[in-house]
Design a protein around this nucleic acid. Sequence first.
DNA 1: TTGTAGGCGTTATCAC
DNA 2: GTGATAACGCCTACAA
Lengths: 338, 338
Amino acid sequence: MAEGLPQHALSRPVTMADVAAHAGVSVSTVSRVISAARPVAEPLRDAVLGAAAELGYQVNLVGRALRKGRTATVGLLVPDLDNPFFSSLAQHLSTAFEGSAADVLVFSTCGDLRVERRGVEAFLGRQVDAVVMIPCHESESVDSVRLAAHSALTIQLDRQVVGADVHFVGCDNAAGLGLITTHIREHVDVDDKPVLYVGAKTLSSSGHERFQQFTQNFPDRPTYLGDFDFAWGQQAVDEILSDGHTRGTIVAAADIIGLGVIAGLHVRGYRVPDDFRVIGFDGIGVARFAHPTLTTVRQPVEEIGQTVLDLVSLPRSTTPSRSVRIAPDLILGDSSPG
Amino acid sequence: MAEGLPQHALSRPVTMADVAAHAGVSVSTVSRVISAARPVAEPLRDAVLGAAAELGYQVNLVGRALRKGRTATVGLLVPDLDNPFFSSLAQHLSTAFEGSAADVLVFSTCGDLRVERRGVEAFLGRQVDAVVMIPCHESESVDSVRLAAHSALTIQLDRQVVGADVHFVGCDNAAGLGLITTHIREHVDVDDKPVLYVGAKTLSSSGHERFQQFTQNFPDRPTYLGDFDFAWGQQAVDEILSDGHTRGTIVAAADIIGLGVIAGLHVRGYRVPDDFRVIGFDGIGVARFAHPTLTTVRQPVEEIGQTVLDLVSLPRSTTPSRSVRIAPDLILGDSSPG
DNA sequence: TTGTAGGCGTTATCAC
DNA sequence: GTGATAACGCCTACAA
């Protein structure tokens, strides 16, 4: 903080000293009224509140933070707010903290390790009480995660880095693939529509886990690995078709990939679910926008937010790092009907 | 800040005094090295940097902020991170500030006026250098906007409240509707496909402006007003059909509504663009996920981010409140081909 | 119950 | 070029 931007000084900001003078009491009395730390006699209290209102006093949280060593702030680091799943996670974490005394502030790392590092330093420097982060990269983000965990309560969200013993809250990816597997076993003729996997290069633990569980549940089935985005889904279709597959059940590692797959199939003249079934993962809202709507494993974002709140609110005596996996559920769409 | 959350004290944090002692210099020298404010002799500089690295010193921005009265922070208030357009705006604002000395911190107001107020107080209390906000409500957010503008450089984004003379950066909605109008005049037989408008109740200035411009460009054409979401788009289709329209050119006030319209039309067995053309507004990424892809007026989010950066970086001598409108462009999709 | 005083970590002013 | 010192705004012993 504190450099690079011009100052916007209008009039000198009102401090507790101003309020105290105006109300004819001491600053400590003002402090006790404002922070409601200790009881203050009715008349004095009214005088203070009156003076504060009259002068337009707003507490300076920087002063308070310096004194108390805490900030009632949770910093959330997200790789990309333009990614519907990440922004949904950010929104639901904010909602979960709405009733708490702490404010959630979000910083986008723009998928860049250096920006991620800057974000961690930004939050630590601002003395946040907790850092919640979706690491950019499964291995290369380890330094940022360690740095955060060294001086603040830190929780990894959705993805976890290898080699850092730090709290984690995320989806039970194995269970999610279990739901997909059961769905396929019960509703799909895999002789007619053999199973294929379109995933992402395993730069994130989630991608990694889903891929591993897929290969375990469906050994020897073809897998296609690219990026975690729409364009890769479209491109994967070309690879699948040029490999000679004309019918199948495509399991996508993320909804955004699945939506690309559906779009790509349509461009090439194939029908969903008649020629290919498609199943996604994450449960992003826009899965409904697809035509047909996407069958997907929904991550319980509300529950994930709540779990982070619980973890942050816990007395820090429970130091041993916890890994909480939350069970997802299957949302049936028309891309793979039940 | 500073209450409600348990403290996470590991070991006493390292301060400049610790570094100074370890390096055998004064705190002033450490400060000068760390903040690069003034030149320091080579050997001392190295000693300080060495000591800082050895002790793992991290600057405490709260102390700095208290002293300097500035924080190198821009606070962004967004109504809903789950809304693809808002989160895209947040992402691009973050990107625009990547090269700047200031950090962008995002707070979601959850579309709630009280949370919005809390967010403004959270940012002002933390002494942010600038507040950038997408107001929740065209009229009811005025107090929050005024409060912010009273003590910090404040910029309204995308929407502006009535009755507050505060900077504004957003899309030229009239020009956007001009693009739509020209497109329709040049490529659509409006006798075969008469024009209809599906908008949102005018709680936001953007919705308001688009609606007004539509009625001006297409007088006496039917308009349907609901919410700014997918469900309303779907529902609007039912109203349109029950009014007896079986063909038409539907102008939606936002992509998210347009996507709902496409979905609704499909459910009812109508084809796009054969029976109905659909045109959206905003240019959200997921417009590509629709089938057919959505023709839309794209807001230049990169340029909007850059403009906010410029406005924040400007010396505050240019006090008169500015209103910057950025021209959008038309993106042709298959829902209304060119 | 209220007031006084000291200090949180940093930077700016002033001497040297 | 460097060091001592005084704030910035707030909270909290401690004293009254």
